[in-house]
Amino acid sequence: MNAPPLLQVNQVTKAFGGIFALNDVSFDLHEGEILGIIGPNGSGKTTLVNCITGFIDLTAGEVLFRGRVISGKPAHKIADMGVTRTFQIMRPYFSLPAYKNLVIPLFAPRAKRTGGWRGGGKLGDRNTVSIDILEELGFERESFVPYKMASNLPTGYLKRLELARCLALNPEIIICDEVFSGLSMSEIASMVPLMERLQMEGITLIMIEHRLRELFRVANRIMVLNFGEKLMEGTAEEVMADEKVKEAYFGSEEVEEVMEHA
């Protein structure tokens, strides 16, 4: 591949007090791919997302987007450039109905500039566009679900709402922090094609997951984190065959289950 990487993470280190949540992590993200990031609990995955998207400052290293340094910029500037993220602990606006939740990102400068997902924001008013986006993500238009208060929505819909918030900005990159966790098998089964469709539309994705089997289905490449360090990077098969990964996940039924299937 000769094209320059869309996102470059160079030797990023993050220390909380004396603890290194991230230690010298580097990777490239190429345009149009889906990169999966896995790792045991507390291995620094969410911290990595926070570092890339400007929600916390780096201790060392740098992050480049299209060759320009973005680390050190405030979070809203980075999101404005099209590098968006979902929150592992979902952050909807609980006091607003689902569709009003989307009116807010549609009001953002980037959405006004680009017209939001597929440019729809330039056509209709924000309430209509937000219902359109929600429908694409599985909120049935004719039902009351899009009009429900976010505080009354079940997890599955909140996860979709997180994704919808990113899509409203017409993003270049979406970093999904565990959008599958907490979902039922059937909910995940309906989310997987959605992720594939986003990739086909040219959105580059980073997916952080504990659900390895579903992740391995959609991801082009997998990176493994353990104790804040990058263990390895490669295809799903390479990762599953790796001794260090087996060690990190030792005892985890999930890996054994996935490996049996492989």
């Binding site: 929600f55 809203h76 807010i104 953002a108 980037r110 918030r165």
Partner: peptide, 24 residues
């Protein structure tokens, strides 16, 4: 109005507002 919604969003969840590319 939409601007007012953003105000309410800032109250509800300022991190999500930042993630939407808006300066709180």
């Amino acid at each position: 109005q939409d601007l007012g919604l953003v105000f309410r969003a800032v109250k509800d969840n300022d991190q999500a507002v930042r993630a939407s590319g808006m300066s709180i």
